[in-house]
């Protein structure tokens, strides 16, 4: 069974057709990279999958659970919307950490709110709630250690470098254990010399078999880490295949142009 199924996804902004019928599937444990020039619709596709944009038509299924269906007229309830939301995680280009919270709190906040609500709904005792929160704290520490920032637990985002902030953002997404972790150009806002530390974390996650969908401009990285590469052009998937197929034997004329332009740069 596919972990992600995207069927006939279309999205317009005013008169601009950004997505013109996107279809693709992703297998569990696979890393899929989406490449393409700006304006090709790759970020919009990612935003539709993660629920930040509502597509005009089409259907998205994550792990057998329909998270979006344009044909469904009934609005999802609050709980359903949240459940859909938590199927996917997203790491932004510009990190978007919460500046007023420490690294630890940035990572724990969402999960804490979730668990508190759950405990309240199930009328758990105060001790049980406390234990659950302590558990979150413990798992946060583990995850933060796994992105190499144990020494920054009590620091604020403004005290971290861009690369460190992005690693916190990854930890923040991981703690909610999404079925698919999405990245929207995770290194585009970073200085070239520190993209490496973020890419290393993503590489490690790929090694652990995490399902990831990555919009990126780092061609070398996409080639190395992906099981499959999707090339988007003008709102459609123009070519897809293994990295070897896409990078070494591109069939699509646009893709050839795009690759020679990025290689020249």
């Amino acid at each position: 069974m596919h972990i992600l199924e995207v069927q006939n996804l279309c999205k317009e902004f005013g008169s601009a057709k950004v997505l013109k019928g996107i279809d693709f599937n992703q297998e569990e444990g696979q890393v899929v990279s989406i490449i393409g020039s700006s304006g090709s619709g790759k970020t919009t596709l990612l935003r539709c999958i993660t629920g930040l944009e509502t597509a005009d038509s089409g259907k998205i299924t994550v792990g057998g659970h329909v998270t979006f269906d344009a044909a469904e007229k009934k609005k999802p309830s609050k709980a359903e919307r949240r459940e859909n939301q938590l199927c996917t995680g997203l790491v932004f280009q510009s990190f978007n950490l919460f500046p007023q919270y420490t690294v630890r709190k940035n990572v724990t906040l969402a999960k804490e709110l979730l668990v508190r609500e759950e405990c309240k709904a199930k009328k758990r005792s105060r001790q049980e709630t406390k234990a659950a929160l302590a558990e979150i704290d413990e798992s946060a520490e583990k995850i933060i250690a796994s992105v190499g920032l144990s020494d920054k637990l009590e620091n604020y985002p403004c005290e971290l470098s861009g690369g460190q902030q992005q690693r916190v953002a990854i930890a923040r997404a991981l703690i909610l254990s999404p079925k698919i972790l999405c990245f929207d150009e995770p290194t585009s806002a970073l200085d070239p010399e520190i993209t490496g530390e973020v890419l290393a974390v993503i590489r490690k996650l790929a090694g652990e078999g995490r399902t990831m969908l990555i919009v990126t401009h780092e061609m070398g990285f996409a080639r190395e880490v992906s099981n499959e590469v999707i090339f988007m052009h003008d709102g459609v998937i123009a070519e897809r295949g293994t990295p070897v197929q896409v990078f070494d034997d591109p069939q699509n004329a646009r893709l050839r142009e795009f690759l020679s332009a990025t290689l020249r740069a």
Binding site: F92, N96, Q100
Partner: peptide, 27 residues
Amino acid sequence: IPKGQYEAGQVLGMTKTQVFFKVVLLQ
């Protein structure tokens, strides 16, 4: 407040009320 703060809250599964009170208000 940058739109990214609201979006970050949303993708982490927070409700609109939680985003306002826990993320945006102090800023």
